[in-house]
Design a protein around this nucleic acid. Sequence first.
DNA 1: TATTGTTATACTCTATAACTATA
DNA 2: TATAGTTATAGAGTATAACAATA
Lengths: 147, 147
Amino acid sequence: MAERGGNRTERLRADIWQALYGLFMAEHESHLEAAAELDVTPGDLKTLIALEPGRADRMRDLAEKWRCDASTVTWVVNRLETRNLVERRAHESDRRVKVVVLSERGVKLRTKLLEHVYRPPEVLANLSAAELQTLHELVKRLCPGPA
Amino acid sequence: MAERGGNRTERLRADIWQALYGLFMAEHESHLEAAAELDVTPGDLKTLIALEPGRADRMRDLAEKWRCDASTVTWVVNRLETRNLVERRAHESDRRVKVVVLSERGVKLRTKLLEHVYRPPEVLANLSAAELQTLHELVKRLCPGPA
DNA sequence: TATTGTTATACTCTATAACTATA
DNA sequence: TATAGTTATAGAGTATAACAATA
């Protein structure tokens, strides 16, 4: 657990995080630029990434996930539906509910966007294969969920 | 340089980045929540972090840095000035120019915000002191700018 | 009566264009 | 004439409240 690491260890953690944070910010900027060139706003990007191909999300669940109002989800989905990127469908058993699915076009655009978002930063090429292996081991230990 | 790493190395890079990316997103959410509790919008947060204590930024330079219109800077600075978090001052030699500086209150709030933003994620406690040392060495090699 | 999603409406954030004052 | 910042105004994005359909 390495608890109570002392000042030196704490400083290490802070340095590591601050460095990574700068890297993330720079990458994030570049993702937004790439999206803009595909006529995708930051909001669209977030939505298209959240909607996994083949999965049907209830409107209400999306609002909860994004901690936004239900009317905002209506608005965002309308936007994307107008561009034929998503489709609204009726829920099978509860007729109050509507679910959202990516259209074929939406899946293609999402794939293109993820190529940017998940493309590793250039600076990762600074590390050798062995170093990457080490880094991977360490990073895996940082992720609570299924890696 | 480790160029032309092959599939395995490329896969490693992608895995590392995807894991770090998820971590970052989770942290970012939590930063925004902490800021909201201090009545600080995402825009305010960005501004307060950008304005370093003791430094005087020209309005025009801020617009360029954020790639936004000059009128947007006027708007954001007005917001913060109303809350006495920043002050506008005249430029010493060019009377067309105005500069923005953090007020005492602004500096205090900024410090409080940065405590959240730069606080290392909990999961970093999963690593031993030796592992952190290794990670630090690797991460430093990823940052082009002055670490 | 409670819940899902939409509509009507208002507020926030950002941009464009016209304006003021300096240079 | 050009530049720094503001104001007037319009548009995108988000929220609140009232509503219709269904449970």
